[in-house]
Each structure stands twice: as structure tokens, then as C-alpha cells.
Simulated assay, not measured.
Amino acid sequence: MESQSETTQTVSALKLPVLKTGDYDLWSMRIEQYLTHTEYAHWEVIVNGDAPAVASATKSTLLLAIPDEQLLKFHGIKDAKTLWEAIKAMFEGNKESKKMQKTILKQQYKNFTPSRTEGLDKTYDRFQKLISQLEIHGEVIS
């Protein structure tokens, strides 16, 4: 059985998920998991608003998870909750872009073929990622 210190060391060794264009849904799930497992108070600040003792650390963590080319757009935001909402507004997309992304994913699924140069593991991983993205967009694959 793991001791408390071993668990803490494992959790603190988690890599901070960095947002990539087009991957907001996956990133938001990863960053939520990261924050709830490294320091739950950080996630509470995002959900409930400012808690001065934790808010600046939470904001700093979120800023570290934003690509460099987007950082200046968010740097002036004063609190973590507003920063989270701004990131969501910019990267999540509107209904039309989500519909388009879902259509593209369905087409990729329909036309999925293994590459001759990739192994079975990479083909499987690519296929699983495609299915996961479809499920995130509400498309159930049987």
C-alpha cells in the first residue's frame, strides 16, 4: 500500500497539460484532472471564484498551460475564474464550428485506414483518439 508521501510525489510529478489549438475539450478535461489531483483548492477557485490565498497560484498554473503565442491575450485578466472562462470562450468554439468539427471527425472515421508505415499500436492509438473525439462531440460509435 502506498504511503501518503509516495502518493503526493506521484501526483506532483504529473505533467501540466498544455492547450493545443483544436483540442480544447480534451485539454479542459485534462487540466481539471490535473488541478483536482495536484491541489483541489485550485479547481475550486475556477468553479467558485476568487479565494485570495489560492487564486494567484491557480491563475499562474492556467497561464503556464496556454501556448506562448496566446499568452499575451490572457495575461491582463485579474482572476482565475475569469481566465478560465476567457480560455473557454476563445478555444471551445461556437455551435457552428463544433458541428463542422463533428462532421470532419465522422468523415475521418468513415475513411480511416491503417498506414503502412505505422505499427499496430500506433494505428490503434490513432483510432482510439478518433473515437474519443467523436464521443466528446456526442457521437456514439457502436
Rank of each mutant, 00 (worst) to 15 (best):
101 Q>L: 10
19 L>E: 02
49 G>I: 05
105 L>V: 07
52 P>K: 12
90 M>N: 09
48 N>G: 14
126 R>P: 07
40 Y>F: 12
141 I>C: 05
2 E>C: 05
130 L>I: 07
56 S>I: 06
103 T>Q: 11
90 M>A: 15
106 K>F: 08
140 V>K: 15
5 S>Y: 05
41 A>M: 08
137 H>E: 13
118 E>W: 13
100 M>R: 12
130 L>C: 04
114 P>R: 13
59 K>H: 06
140 V>I: 14
135 E>I: 11
45 V>P: 02
112 F>E: 04
56 S>V: 08
59 K>M: 11
129 K>E: 11
76 G>T: 12
47 V>W: 01
11 V>L: 07
1 M>N: 13
24 Y>C: 01
42 H>G: 02
142 S>L: 13
101 Q>K: 15
19 L>P: 04
50 D>S: 15
5 S>C: 06
98 K>F: 04
125 D>V: 09
131 I>V: 15
73 K>Q: 13
61 T>Y: 02
115 S>K: 09
142 S>T: 09
20 K>W: 00
140 V>R: 15
46 I>F: 02
72 L>P: 00
66 I>D: 03
39 E>H: 11
14 L>K: 10
66 I>Q: 03
130 L>W: 05
44 E>K: 08
124 Y>Q: 04
52 P>V: 11
47 V>E: 13
129 K>M: 08
77 I>N: 11
139 E>C: 06
70 Q>G: 01
82 T>E: 14
126 R>T: 14
120 L>A: 15
110 K>T: 05
47 V>F: 04
112 F>P: 00
47 V>G: 00
81 K>A: 13
18 V>C: 07
85 E>Q: 14
118 E>Q: 13
74 F>H: 11
137 H>T: 10
54 V>K: 07
57 A>Q: 12
134 L>S: 05
111 N>R: 12
20 K>L: 10
5 S>E: 10
121 D>P: 02
14 L>T: 06
91 F>I: 02
70 Q>E: 15
141 I>S: 05
92 E>G: 01
41 A>T: 08
13 A>R: 15
91 F>E: 09
34 Y>E: 03
24 Y>M: 01
1 M>I: 08
120 L>T: 14
101 Q>M: 11
